[in-house]
Design a protein around this nucleic acid. Structure first.
Lengths: 243, 243
DNA sequence: GCCGATATTCTGTCGGACAATCCGACTGTC
DNA sequence: GACAGTCGGATTGTCCGACAGAATATCGGC
């Protein structure tokens, strides 16, 4: 049966301080770039000890709501950077033991559609970036780490072409989780590089021509190819991704 | 010209402590449910002050890597809960001023495909949950908050039908960002509720019959309907979402 | 106005302290 | 044996005070 009383929650001071600052940020009462008052000042305002304020600040810092400028001392209000958010998501997924197959399936959901949208909305500079990344990938020698980094950058750049920050953020963790296993695949499947170059070329052409269907189809092929590559490389598909 | 030496980065002790514990967790050297040593003990092991350890712990706590059991005192290793991760993502998107249109577009990318996969992979218990949520939504009176919560739960439950944790996590922030504006829409468009019930019924039927195409089509209609509802409610589509 | 030296501020870290409270063990009662 | 009291140790939340070193502001000189 149902309990009559809810457990009362005694939130510690450092959490209340953090929540208070956070709400000011979310309400845009404190804006991006504003400098936060000094710790002693905050301690005075909240009527708590500086240690307590510091613990609250660590929390905000790891949420990405405040940050320190390069080599700087004072804290500034900042907005969570996509890279940080994405790394948090990847960490969570990795810890939950998500398999390669799940990541791949999610990419099959997102990437082809993203490519189609990119074909409709891309801007010239973004197309140039894709072209640049493609030729850089082709020019790379045997440095596999570089190669994988370039492939990942290609995916990210393509996501940016959609002009949709939600899609950019949804996609970032996927490529991040993919890259370690992608390394193994490129190592062991000789023809992988050529196939990637080809797919990228066709994608670029479709996006240049603003042809969504063609872009979607090629992206689908491209992603499907990854799975084929994994199978060829003898990597089990229920391999738990790691970062 | 290029500098010979890179600036060495002097990471503060609390960050090194946090990184050290985090790496132990990521390497599964510390497993889910294990109790963390007491603060004084950690301070002794790392040879730093307890205050320093505490700042490190706050960081891990807000990343969701350690948590405290209900009313407990000791810290335990835990895996980031999807809800926490999703709320971090939504916060980031909201702070970046993402518009309703971007969220909607992302939903158009993810949800129909997710529905198709759900139709292929759902289990019986999950289908029952969808049915339950649908009838609960229909039975609800004029309590709009309850209604929206139920709609959101329906989306989440449908995502779980895909058996894909990546999709679940990718989708969660979207519904979260959608719900505040969804409230406004249901308030102002009288026929909205009936249309939602109908769409959910058709979705359930398609998923029950394991018919991916039908599920995809109905989900597409369903999401498209949201946008129509917004237009009817006179909500501007470049409205910045908030949480 | 620009530049360098100096003073000031602020952070990172430390040590110690104390109340609250959680936990486990122990005890006695029904 | 199940259960309510009691008690002591362990642990957290919070505080205080302190100090070195780095970043920042100030000021005098050109």
């Amino acid at each position: 049966m149902n309990n009559l009383f809810e457990p009362i929650k005694m939130e510690p001071a450092y959490r209340r301080v953090a929540a208070s600052i956070e709400s000011k940020i979310m309400a845009r009462d404190l804006n991006d770039g504003d400098t936060l008052p000094a710790e002693t000042d905050l301690a005075r305002q909240f009527q708590v000890n500086r240690s307590t304020v510091r613990e609250a600040l660590r929390e905000l810092q790891s949420k990405g709501l405040v940050a320190r400028r390069e080599g700087g001392k004072r804290l500034f209000i900042s907005h969570p950077q996509p890279a940080d958010v994405a790394s948090g998501v990847s960490r969570a997924l990795a810890l939950h033991g998500v398999t390669f197959l799940e990541v791949w399936e999610a990419m099959m959901v997102i990437e082809p559609q993203a490519a189609a949208i990119a074909a409709r909305k891309r801007e010239t500079a973004q197309l140039d970036e894709l072209i640049e990344l493609n030729s850089r990938f082709e020019a790379l020698g045997s440095d596999h780490d570089q190669a994988i980094a370039t492939v990942v950058q290609f995916f990210r750049a393509l996501a940016r072409c959609t002009q949709n920050r939600v899609l950019v953020l949804a996609q970032a963790p996927l490529t991040r989780l993919l890259s370690p296993t992608l390394a193994r695949m490129i190592d062991q499947v000789p023809q992988a590089r050529a196939r990637i170059v080809t797919a990228q070329r066709h994608l670029i052409e479709a996006i240049r021509a603003r042809n969504p269907d063609e872009a979607r189809n090629w992206m689908e092929k491209h992603i499907r190819d990854f799975k084929r590559g994994y199978e060829l490389a003898g990597i089990e598909l229920d391999y738990r991704v790691a970062i």
